[in-house]
Nucleic acid binder design. Sequence first.
DNA 1: TGGGTGAACGCAAACGCTTGCGCACGAGAC
DNA 2: GTCTCGTGCGCAAGCGTTTGCGTTCACCCA
Lengths: 338, 338
Amino acid sequence: MVGIEEVAQRAGVSPSTVSRALRGRSGVSDRTRQRIAELAAELDYSISRSASGLATGRTFCIGVVVPFVWRWFFGQIIGGAEQVLRAAGYDLMLYTAGDEEARERFFRELPVRGRVDAVLVLSMDLTEQEADRLRGLDLPLGLVGHEAEGFSSVHIDDRLGTKLAVQHLINLGHRDIAIIQGLEPKPLGAIAPIVRREAFLRTLYDNDIEPRPEWMVPGEFSISGGERAMDRLLAESHQPTAVFAYADELAMGALRSLRRHGRSAPEHMSIVGFDDHEMSEYVDLTTVAQPVRAQGAAAAQLLIDQLVAGSRQNTVVPVPIELVVRGSTAPPRKTAEL
Amino acid sequence: MVGIEEVAQRAGVSPSTVSRALRGRSGVSDRTRQRIAELAAELDYSISRSASGLATGRTFCIGVVVPFVWRWFFGQIIGGAEQVLRAAGYDLMLYTAGDEEARERFFRELPVRGRVDAVLVLSMDLTEQEADRLRGLDLPLGLVGHEAEGFSSVHIDDRLGTKLAVQHLINLGHRDIAIIQGLEPKPLGAIAPIVRREAFLRTLYDNDIEPRPEWMVPGEFSISGGERAMDRLLAESHQPTAVFAYADELAMGALRSLRRHGRSAPEHMSIVGFDDHEMSEYVDLTTVAQPVRAQGAAAAQLLIDQLVAGSRQNTVVPVPIELVVRGSTAPPRKTAEL
DNA sequence: TGGGTGAACGCAAACGCTTGCGCACGAGAC
DNA sequence: GTCTCGTGCGCAAGCGTTTGCGTTCACCCA
């Protein structure tokens, strides 16, 4: 492994000059700089990140905390973020904190300490304690999904999205509308489920529809979670004519359950999801589309901006959403009771 | 940020002793060690990774190189790997090298240099040059998907998997079988497409079936890629009764195309995929199942083993596969020409 | 009682890079 | 010809840990 010393010797200059030349600092003549750059390339010199980090206090690394890597949604965001970070010369360090144990451990040990220059948190509703722990790092912080004090953030309007979806159902003539909610509102859950649930209720009220508690079922965040949720709905004596699902994956599970019970959408029941998952077009699901990759990219950019500016100014970027009407929603059958 | 010096002062010992105590080195009395541990916890001391890395030459970081983060398949593998790495005290640094530009850049700049203790490459067919570049790092190397000199690896038997799938179709009575191949065999592509294609041909030959070139269509690795591929097949004057798709995502696209053309599987055409994607059960797709998360975990473990042993011994772990028969395959219609 | 032994710990030199400061030198201004 | 100033560069002191080696001290055995 060739070090800065060797490059310096070959170039006939001191290590300081090599350092300055390579980092683009002033105080080096163009001729020398050029020569050093060539020499470095020729020798395949690569700076020691540890040494550089020790000397400067910067790691050129961004920590990204995510509940699950293997969800399409998160993969997209990470992909978007990575592209921006890479372009800015930063590496991405991945931390998953899906289950409670991993999460507790992450915030206790805070393995990002001294490893990263900024932290990006994806779609996790942080407890005040967790947020504080991160704020204590004194690093630029980013958040995708909602807002929090001390964080730059990028997020959609969950309230509006929910309203778009539910109002769409109502406009089609539905009044018997169920919701498959996200995770149970636990302290460790995401905040979006709560917001969407409230917006769901509000939209019903605004249309003089009385919600029925038995039509508000929780759904674990997965296809099979959605399937089980729909199973429960179908087990009710009186069934809704439409369902709003917290996420497309839940909606897909609902569709599967429907099919297993010999029903289909939208003939027997209309279903609308949220996210516009890659597969949603495939299964012809009406949904609320949000740009996913772009959110990751935008959040990463906010952090980079802070890092290059050296300032700590938190920004909030709203993200547009859109109702995409596909084949899973239609007016209710006259003979809804089948 | 409290450093080792402060812990040392408060404990009334030298930094050396603190270092030894915290790293579990011998030469520290149990009483002192205990005291230091408590003090470190109390002060929320966190070691400077840069400094430690500089002194030891180890980063406790593993680089993971992946073509795309947002594919379900890779997300799963990364998730599996992360869990193992985290448990062993390593962090995960993510590098995506999906398109040619990113890939070329990655192998030229080799940003992992001096940043990681080992490198894990996921499902990328490395050119000899690329593999050499990595070998030049003189670090433990891991590979998921196939084997390569100088790498520990974890992979399935693509040949066998393909044979299982195609033979299944033949056993059902199909003789007019098409293949939707993976990426065109480019230098930068994966090696699996080539292997599966060859195994496909061999299985046909072994059953005295003559392959038809017009029934071997390429498919870009995505749902819409599969859709376009099936469009091409359906445009042929003489059509196959069954299709083997390189991956489930391609198969799903094929199903979509089929439906768009007013056909369906398995009535008009049988379709079998590869991977057992999360969604495959949902769309009732017959496929070759491989454990995905487990492969990531196993590969990570191979690297950890090398790192703790300090030796450089490459191991190859074969991974079992299994044909999962679902509803997308059936015997051909008598009136295949519809 | 003296010498040997091992445990517990401190000293100081790395590790490889960065950067404030100082020096030399040439170019201009007077 | 002196003075000033700016440019280009080297010196050396960090940055926070680790670790080989040396020292101290208590203890044991001859």
